[in-house]
């Protein structure tokens, strides 16, 4: 038996969750106050994922950078690979919220999308 102590990040409550694992299988989740905590804890110990937010170089816009995020969460272990693709990317203005800026970032199957509008100048 193995136990993992986690702080739930599902909401600002930050519940302290204890997960009991047996040979990689979740046996029990305790300490959470809602169902989201249970889901988070199970995922965090088996397949942790994160949303990555950053900026991308934009040309011809009223700002030099456009803010962006991965449209869905990506494996936690791939954060820096994702950043590498984001750093290398370059887009042209204009850009609208939700526009895809990088397709299938770092082979995750997840797109990077714009989180703000940038006007063309």
């Amino acid at each position: 038996m193995e136990t993992r102590e986690l702080t739930c990040i599902g909401c600002p409550m930050g519940c302290q969750i204890t997960v009991e694992l047996d040979k990689g299988e979740v046996v029990s989740v305790t300490g959470n106050t809602c169902a989201r905590g249970d889901i988070y804890a199970r995922k965090e110990v088996t397949n942790p994922t994160r949303i990555v937010t950053s900026t991308i170089v934009i040309k011809g816009g009223d700002k030099p950078r456009v803010s962006c995020k991965t449209a869905n969460d990506i494996p936690k272990g791939k954060i820096f690979e994702v950043m590498k693709d984001i750093d290398a990317a370059e887009v042209d203005a204009p850009v609208k919220i939700g526009d895809v800026l990088v397709k299938d970032v770092a082979g995750t199957g997840v797109d990077v999308i714009a989180t703000r509008n940038i006007e063309k100048v």
Partner: peptide, 22 residues
């Protein structure tokens, strides 16, 4: 505030700062 985590209470989804503002 380009990170996410905004709007869980208001929109029931996680937005970034610029998206929430927009």
């Amino acid at each position: 505030c380009i990170h996410n985590g905004f709007g869980l209470h208001t929109f029931k989804e996680e937005l970034t700062g610029p998206e929430y503002a927009y």
